[in-house]
Write a protein that binds this DNA or RNA. Structure first.
Lengths: 230, 230, 230, 230
DNA sequence: CATGAATGAGGATTCATTCAT
DNA sequence: AATGAATGAATCCTCATTCAT
């Protein structure tokens, strides 16, 4: 009955501890089974408690799942260090893509649940996770906007489309991993995605950054000559 | 009650017609409910037949769903005109992206079923839809390879990553539509995605394609003039 | 459409031919699947006809099965040559046991259907197969009665019990074969069963009850006399 | 409606009690209906519970049926007192036959389920009931082997065949009862079967194999002596 | 705080049988 | 004579949720 025994699982936990334990087990279960095959019975078994106890702390299976998602997101957001805004644009983008690949890869089932289930819920917008999700999106948007302001990004791009591309691409890539199709590393993917987003895939004709000043000088000369010939 | 009335649905249909009708109704149902909430009972009701009849023609609910997906894909593939390979690279990419956006938007539930359910099926690779799906992927890859060969595409890009980006982006965009977030048109999305994939988002310093020869000529003149003036 | 073509199955058969064909296929099916797993759909498929056609000739699945059993029994009875009543008792018993082993082994599913299904049917006694079955039982009984009359069989045995033993033993033995437990041949089984039924399993202590002492006495006298005469 | 009434069946039972009650009701139902017509819905109704409750305690209908069979067998085996091995051979055989007749007669449907269903199951050999069944067979075999060793049984009999005969005969006899054919008592059957197995049915002709010639010689001598004495 | 017995509204699937053509 | 489309009642089984203890 002592709580110090290593093998003894305490029967009675404080509400907070119990909730935490359930959420932790639920996340594992969700990860392994996916939302559809997530059974409350299996969850109870893993926690070593009865199903009834789960309902003491969570209103419903769905509610539990939502809390799992929110908790996951919370960690994700906490982990996000202020993010050095002084870094070069490309580097910032790479970091955020790498981060997203990592997190999504760690919880693809949660991602899927969020994307295809929660987001379709009419009540989605009133969920905490909606706000959390916006924050992540905002992080990407921020980088893009900064890039825009700094002249690193073309003025004609649509921030939302780019964000969708990045996120969609990341998720797709993760599922590709999961299907065992890819032996590519996260780092590799992150670099690849960043690269394409930043530079595109087209051959950059003559990239003659240095031509401009030359041209300008020549034009001056031409002007002068024009004056001469007059 | 008369059998001659135009509005009266015939009780007995030929096998082909019945199958077609079931598939059609099934597709609607899948579209409305999603695969998980797709009930054979509701399908039967919509067709005005008994559930038993469904099982006369389809081995199982899942089998039916697969056939729906395959039929949908079939149409998609048939619709694909030979695709003019003489078109400029960007145009070809735009076409294929537009096409995919359209099709996925028309059947997002099917897409989801395909992506998160069928693809996870161990038997996936032996399904017809696997081949069909490969064909679509190959279509995109083909364009990219052609671009590569024609020098329109950077040599250092990874075709698979680009393909994943394109497909992932498309799917994500569609879910964005479905959530009612987007007031953007398919055409707009297609252009945006194509644009970013092709050109990237970075500012292209002076894209001076035509400038180069001019500059060179002017320099020669300048040099001469410089000599003169000396 | 000619009936002479080897590969062409005639579409339309006379009623008798059709019935015969169905019965034949039904017997095979029953043999392979057992009564419980006997499906009318599979039967129709094997006959190359529709299920509806079966119901043209048979009132119900059960009725069909009964006819199969009856037909089977009919053949069995026909095959039974008058049976030489002059043979020794043991030989007659052996023959009938061998015969029964053979027939039951050839159609164990039918036997089981008959025993555990038909016989439990309240209407059993009014079926033709009831009469047929009685005839077989009568065959065994006849042998036993003849043996009784001829003094080959103990007067205190109960014919019905013996008959049950024989038939029960035969059926049990067959199921033992079917479970792959036995590598014993029918002939071997027949001999074994006959042997035990006829002789029992007890050691027959030279049952010479009254003779032995007499003989021994006579031998003593003989010995003496022999000495005298020498 | 009061919960204090003595006739009120308690709604909630402990797991063990509930399981026991279900098993008990299941046995009755199996007895009455046979395995094929055993419906989980009817069982639930009889227990006054929902079908779901049954599935709380049993993985499947078949699993439940197996447990019923095993429990039945368990009782049978427990009931088997050490069995006095000092009894005469015939008596031991009679006891075991009587016992088997009793038990099988008490649960013929279970017997049938065991014999024609479970035994055909590929997993049969890994079931507990397989071991239990072996034990019973071993009991019979033991008696026969003891008889063999003690010289009570002929050396040329096959133990397995005899065992099959005994068991087959018992089962057959029980079905005969069930069909209402038999007005014979279990005791009568047991005696009859034992009798035939032990003694066979043949008249035991004074087996005088070697005595005969001796007798004949003696008779000749006697004849001669008769002449002398004349 | 915790249990765990019980639920019950479905869920997919089966298959002998019917009957309009 | 034959078809084959259609049936529908029946069957096993699932699982989130409740509530008496």
């Amino acid at each position: 009955m002592s709580t110090t025994g290593p093998a003894t699982k305490p029967r009675r936990l404080s509400k907070d501890n119990r909730v935490a334990e359930i959420l932790k087990a639920a996340r594992s279960l969700l990860r392994e089974r996916g939302a559809e095959a997530f059974l409350t019975s299996e969850l109870a078994e893993r926690c070593g408690i009865s199903e009834g106890t789960i309902y003491k702390y969570f209103a419903s299976r769905r509610d539990l799942l939502i809390q799992v998602a929110e908790e996951w997101f919370e960690e994700f957001l906490e982990d996000e260090h202020p993010h050095d805004r002084e870094l070069p644009f490309r580097e910032r983008l790479l970091q955020v893509i790498r981060k997203n690949l990592t997190i999504i890869r760690s919880e693809p089932s949660l991602t899927r649940f969020l994307l295809s289930d929660l987001r379709a819920d009419p009540a989605y917008r009133s969920m905490r996770i909606y706000q959390q999700n916006r924050q992540v999106a905002k992080g990407i948007s921020q980088i893009l906007e900064d890039g825009l302001r700094d002249g690193a990004v073309r003025a004609d791009i649509q921030i939302r489309t780019v964000r969708n591309m990045i996120q969609g691409c990341i998720e797709y890539q993760v599922w590709s991993y999961l299907r065992g199709e890819g032996d590519i590393s996260i780092e590799h993917s992150a670099q690849g995605i960043t690269d394409i987003v930043v530079r595109g895939i087209a051959v950059e004709a003559d990239k003659p950054s240095e031509l401009a000043p030359v041209v300008r000088r020549l034009e001056a000369i031409a002007d002068r000559l024009s004056g001469l010939g007059a």
